[in-house]
Design a protein around this nucleic acid. Structure first.
Length: 541
RNA sequence: GCUCCGGUAGCUCAGCUGGAUAGAGCAACGGAUUUCUAAUCCGUAGGUCACAGGUUCGAGUCCUGUCCGGAGUACCA
């Protein structure tokens, strides 16, 4: 109906010579105000110098609405125009949903386009923590939304296995290894204290028992890296997150991409030397302080490879490039974008999604998290406690802009009053009805009398179902995926309400068939939505 | 100091590009089950949308300022 309304309304506005820019339709909060509403008369009042009511009158008087689409319209104070959708039109759309089936909710916005989503990107220094979890699920869900919009999506994990951190990791493993052999060495300053290092040391000892203090640190480093990466990948696999590309920062060095960036920035006179370090003249680009690109030790900071990496992403030709960062990386990307712009690289394809932190509450107290000090709860532990579905749902049910309070104790004990179960239960209930229907040989009927679907909670459910594609589009355009779980929760609510209002399988065969069609649509919408979230839609619970 | 995010019911949070009487869940209280799964449904109660100005027909939503909480402001990533 909305398409139709926008079309006839703008046509009428044009013929009156009135501006159409502010023409919008919205869904009234209260269905008493119709199924669609426009404030066009209010917005035109000023420029036309007429009362909104008069404008609305004039506007509507020249339109003959198609009765099979718009059953009724009215002008409401102070000047809204409300439209009521014809039920037959609603029922046509229901049929359409059923035809689309598992494609219902998809759109073609990304058809023929490519997208790259970079997320997780944790360096292999320790297992994924509860903190990484948010980004992991956020990135994967955004990727799913993109795929639902027919983008060709590359999920990418960017990592760095060189530098100070990794050396420290190697040192830490070496110490733990030698400890196992009886050596009383203690961890270096800033070493990794986690027990997982000891586990890896044990494994290394059994595989290569002859290493000693003089052994090449490289052996320890690469062994630690390999083991930790396997750990990370196993965790990702558990929650069904699969990256297409693991991009090693090192390749940027090997292929001369890093040198190219610094050379070109130097040519632009945006780099200077001070105290033995190479500085990026960001003040010249509008920032309040300059940044180090290459430390006095000769090692680049993360900033330089980040610039090279992003430049490379743009070169790879993606139509859409999405970076998922935690709030702690807030400061890094403006510099990177500024550098790219200075280098003449187009940055309009790049979007950055910043998510706020996850605060973990344990026994009502905040747990401080640090990988190095091993003060953290791993993502694996969380999955063990609450399960994959709950983990995936919890991480994205809230806006990425808000801090996420993850109360561990609550999450553990809450398994029965969890929103995700509310959703799944709705799906299972419907499945149960279909099992019963099958037992009674209520097979799909070709002549459905959709006009029988006219009770309030039925119409409400149908409207809710039809809203799904818009929600997907909203998630896409805003990259805020929490709208989806919120929507699905409401959908489940409409479904539960319908369930308690109406018995589906009854002696009224015609009505039963009509309701089964509606349920089929509701079920597939839930299923499609849950699929985007990566949450299972159980047949029974 | 500066940059970014948040401040909405006792708690955790929604609130679509400004719209009509600000909504859920949890917690509290009351009700519904000879019925397709009660992990459900219905009802009651709970609000100065941090505060103060501004913009306009209209502001939780936009602008300015203040206060509170968080993140950053590294030759860590």
């Amino acid at each position: 109906m909305n398409h139709y309304l926008l079309e006839v309304l703008s046509e009428r506005l044009n013929s009156l010579g009135w501006p159409t820019e502010t023409l919008r339709l919205s869904r009234p909060n209260d269905s008493i105000n119709g199924d669609a509403s426009t404030n066009i008369a209010l917005t035109l009042a000023r420029t036309l110098k007429k009362s909104p009511i008069t404008i609305a009158d004039e506007l509507l008087s020249g339109i003959n609405f198609d009765k099979s689409i718009v059953s009724k319209y009215e002008i409401a104070n102070p000047g809204f125009i409300n439209f009521f959708q014809a039920q037959s039109n609603l029922h046509e759309q229901l049929v359409n949903v059923l035809v689309l089936g598992s494609d219902f909710g998809k759109n073609n916005i990304g058809l023929g386009k490519t997208a790259q989503v970079e997320f997780v990107s944790a360096n292999p220094t320790g297992p994924l923590t509860v903190g990484h979890g948010r980004q992991t699920i956020l990135g994967d869900t955004i990727s799913n939304i993109l795929e639902w919009s027919h983008y060709d999506v590359t999920r990418e994990y960017y990592f760095n296995n060189a530098g100070r951190q990794m050396r420290m990791l190697g040192e830490s493993l070496k110490v733990r290894y030698l400890n196992l052999k009886g050596d009383k060495l203690s961890l270096p300053d800033g070493g990794y204290e986690g027990d997982y290092i000891i586990e890896i040391a044990k494994r290394l000892l059994s595989e290569k028992p002859t290493l000693d203090n003089d052994s090449d640190i490289e052996i320890f480093k690469s062994y630690a890296e390999e083991n930790i990466f396997n750990l990370i990948k196993k965790t990702l696999q558990r929650i069904h997150v699969q990256h297409d590309v693991f991009y090693n920062e090192k390749s940027l060095y090997d292929e001369g991409k890093i040198d190219a960036v610094i050379d070109e920035l130097r040519l632009k006179e945006l780099v200077y030397e001070k105290d033995g370090a190479h500085w990026f003249k960001t003040t010249e680009l509008g920032f309040d302080q300059d940044r180090v690109l290459i430390k006095s030790t000769g090692e680049p900071t993360y900033r330089l490879p980040d610039i090279a990496y992003h430049r490379e992403k743009v070169r790879r030709g993606f139509d859409l490039i999405i970076d998922i960062f935690g709030a702690d990386h807030m400061d890094t990307y403006p510099d990177v974008l500024a550098a790219l712009n200075a280098l003449g690289t187009e940055t309009s394809a790049i979007s950055v999604v910043i998510h706020q932190f996850v605060t973990l509450l344990k026994n009502g107290e905040m747990v401080k998290m640090s990988t190095r000090k091993a003060e953290f709860v791993t993502l694996d532990e969380l999955i063990d406690e609450v399960g994959i579905d709950v983990v995936r749902y919890f991480y994205i049910m809230r806006s990425a802009n808000s801090h996420l309070n993850f109360d561990l104790d609550l999450a553990k004990r809450q398994t029965e009053e969890n929103p995700v179960f509310y959703l799944q239960y709705a799906h299972a209930r419907v499945s149960s009805i279909f099992r019963r229907a099958k037992q009674r040989d209520l097979l799909p009927n070709e002549n459905i009398d959709y006009a029988l679907l006219d009770e309030p909670s039925t119409i409400a459910l149908l409207n809710q179902i039809l809203f799904f594609p818009d929600v997907v589009k909203k998630c896409l355009s805003t990259l805020e995926v929490h709208h989806l779980p919120n929507y699905l929760y409401d959908l489940a609510g409409s479904l539960h309400k319908f369930y308690s209002d109406h018995k589906v399988l009854s002696n009224d065969i015609a009505l039963t068939h009509a309701r089964l069609q509606l349920l089929k649509a509701a079920q597939l919408t839930l299923k499609n939505g849950l699929a985007i979230l990566g949450v299972t839609a159980p047949e029974s619970m």
